[in-house]
Computed example of a mutant assay.
Amino acid sequence: MKSLFRPGLLLVLALPLVLAACGDKEPEQRAAFSQFLQTRILDKPGVRVPQLTADESKAFGDYSRHYAVISDFNAGMDASVKPLGELMQKGSMRSLGDVIARRDDIQAIQAGLNKMSTQLTSEQAKADAAHAQLKQPEDLKVVYDKAYDKTVSVPANTFREVLPQINGTFDSSLKIADYVNAHKGQIEISGAVVKVQDPAVQAELNALLQELNSQAKNVQQAQARLQSLMTGR
C-alpha cells in the first residue's frame, strides 16, 4: 500500500518546483533587453536613447529599471545643455565694438557655461553611481556597458571637454575688452574701423585679436565634434 501512495506524494512535491521554473521569465527578459540595446542603440549612428513603449517595459521586466539609468541621464543631459545654442548665439560678436559693449553679456554667458558643466558633472556622477549598483549576468553586462559608454560616458565627457574650449573664447574676448578699456586714449573704434595711435598698443591688441580668432576656430571644431557625436555624421 505504501508503494501506491509514494509516486503521488513525489508528484505533489515536485509540482511547485516545476511551476516555479516555468514562471521564471528572466532569460527571455534579458534576451529581449540585450537585443534592444544592440539594435536600437549600439547599431544606430549617433546618440539615440528611445523611450520605452509599454510593451517593451513589460518585455524587459526589471531590466527596464536598468535602462532608466541611461534614459534618466540623457533627459538630465538634454536639460543641462539645452541653453548651449542660445548662449552661443548670444555670444556671437561681429566687431571689436561688440566685444567692448557686451562685456556684461560675455560674463553672463560664461556663468551659464559653468553652470552647464556643473550640472552635467552631477548628472554623470549620479548615473555612474546607479550603474555601479546594477547586478547583471555577464552576457548582458557586456552589451549594457557598451550602450552605457556610448550614451552616457562618451557624450558627458565630450561635452565637459568642449565647454572649457568654448569658454576660452569668451576669456579672450574679456581680455580684449579689458585691454581696450585700459587704453582708451590710444584706441578709437568707429563701427568696424579701429584706429590705434601707439604702435606698441597696436601690436599688443593685434596679438589679442589673433588669440581670439584662434579660439574661435577651436569653438567651430568643438561644435562640429559635438554635432558628429550626437548625430553620427
Rank of each mutant, 00 (worst) to 15 (best):
M116R: 13
A59F: 05
T121Y: 09
V69A: 10
T118K: 13
P45I: 06
V99T: 03
D104T: 00
K90T: 14
D105P: 13
Y63F: 10
N114H: 15
T39G: 07
N74Q: 07
A101Q: 06
L42Q: 14
F36Y: 08
D128N: 01
E28N: 13
G46Y: 11
I41F: 09
L84H: 10
K44W: 09
G112T: 06
S57V: 01
L96Q: 08
A68H: 06
F60V: 07
R48D: 13
D98S: 00
L37K: 02
D55A: 01
Y63T: 07
L96T: 11
T39M: 04
T39P: 08
T118A: 11
K44Q: 14
A127P: 03
A111D: 14
L96K: 08
Q124F: 01
D62V: 02
L96W: 02
Q89M: 11
N74P: 15
S117Q: 13
G46E: 14
I109Q: 03
F60N: 06
Q35L: 12
A111C: 11
V142P: 15
Q124D: 01
R30G: 11
S71C: 08
D72H: 01
D105T: 01
E56P: 03
D139K: 00
M116S: 12
M88T: 02
Q119L: 06
E138D: 12
L134Q: 05
Y67I: 06
H66T: 14
D62P: 12
T121A: 07
G46N: 11
L140N: 05
K126Y: 14
A79E: 14
E86R: 04
G112H: 04
G91K: 07
H66C: 14
G91A: 11
A129Y: 03
E56R: 00
P137F: 02
T53L: 13
D55H: 08
Q89P: 08
V142M: 10
S57H: 04
K58P: 15
A101R: 09
A101N: 05
G85R: 13
S92F: 08
K44S: 08
E56T: 00
M116C: 10
P137E: 12
L134T: 07
E123P: 09
R48C: 15
Q107W: 02
G61I: 06
S57T: 05
Q107A: 00
I106T: 02
Q107G: 00
R94D: 14
T39K: 00
V49A: 02
G97M: 04
M93C: 13
D105I: 04
G91M: 09
R103E: 15
Q29P: 12
Q38S: 08
T53H: 09
L134M: 06
P137N: 08
K141Q: 02
A125T: 03
K115N: 13
E138M: 06
